[in-house]
Simulated assay, not measured.
Amino acid sequence: MESPKRRMAFKKLKGRCITELLPLGCTLHRLASHKVSQAASNCLRTKVAFRTKAVIYYTEILRNSDVQLQQTACLALKCLKAMESVEQEAELWWSSDEDLRSAVRETVLSYDGLQC
């Protein structure tokens, strides 16, 4: 908070409702690529607007041709317990990349016992 830019940004955010501060795609991408921490996934899961945007973003990434991005998106969806993306994940089940198939399998199996 020492730089003037950070102070100005903080002042702009101060007093805003948490639901107004929807995450940007780049923020969600960064979270996924750093293997979404439990605290971050809890926050995204509990804030409906955040979670909705995150699920849409990560589900869209599943269609990307970059296998690494698909894998991290899959694991982010697992942290979010996003059963609504299971059909898109199932499409990756037959991928030629073993790590991606493993991430998909891990994600889909994590939904066992969850209710829609």
Rank of each mutant, 00 (worst) to 15 (best):
Q71N: 08
A49I: 09
V55T: 10
A49F: 10
Y57F: 15
K78P: 00
T59P: 02
C79A: 08
F50N: 04
K53W: 03
L77M: 08
T52H: 10
L69M: 13
V67K: 13
T72D: 07
R63A: 15
L75W: 04
I56R: 10
Y57E: 09
A76I: 02
K78M: 15
C79F: 03
S65N: 13
E60H: 12
A76Q: 07
I61G: 00
R63F: 15
C74A: 15
L69Y: 11
L77N: 03
R63C: 12
A73P: 00
F50W: 15
V55C: 11
I61L: 10
L75R: 09
I61R: 06
A54F: 02
S65D: 14
R63T: 13
D66I: 14
L62M: 11
R51P: 09
K53M: 10
T72A: 01
R63W: 11
I61P: 00
V67Q: 11
L77C: 07
R63E: 14
E60V: 07
L75M: 12
L62Q: 01
T59K: 04
S65M: 14
D66R: 15
A49V: 11
Q68N: 10
L62R: 01
R63G: 08
E60L: 10
A49C: 08
A49L: 12
V55A: 05
L75H: 02
A54L: 04
T59I: 11
Q68K: 13
Y58E: 03
E60W: 06
L62I: 08
A73M: 07
Y57W: 15
L69G: 01
I56V: 11
Y58V: 01
C74K: 01
Q71I: 03
C79G: 14
I56H: 08
Q70L: 09
T59M: 07
I56Q: 10
Q70S: 05
K78F: 04
R51W: 03
V67A: 12
Q70M: 07
S65L: 14
K78R: 15
I56L: 12
R63S: 15
Q70H: 04
A73W: 09
V67F: 04
V55W: 05
D66G: 02
T59S: 14
V67E: 13
R63M: 12
K78A: 07
A54G: 07
V55M: 04
K78D: 00
F50P: 02
T72H: 03
R63H: 14
L62D: 01
V55K: 03
E60M: 10
Q70N: 13
Q70Y: 04
Y58K: 02
Q70A: 05
D66H: 12
D66V: 13
R63I: 08
R51F: 02
C74N: 02
T52G: 11
C74Q: 01
F50G: 02
Q70T: 02
E60C: 08
K78V: 01
V67P: 01
N64T: 09
L69H: 09
L77R: 04
L69C: 06
F50H: 12
D66A: 15
T59H: 06
F50Q: 05
T59Q: 08
I61S: 03
V55E: 06
I56D: 09
Q71L: 12
L77A: 07
K53P: 00
I61F: 03
C79Y: 06
C74P: 01
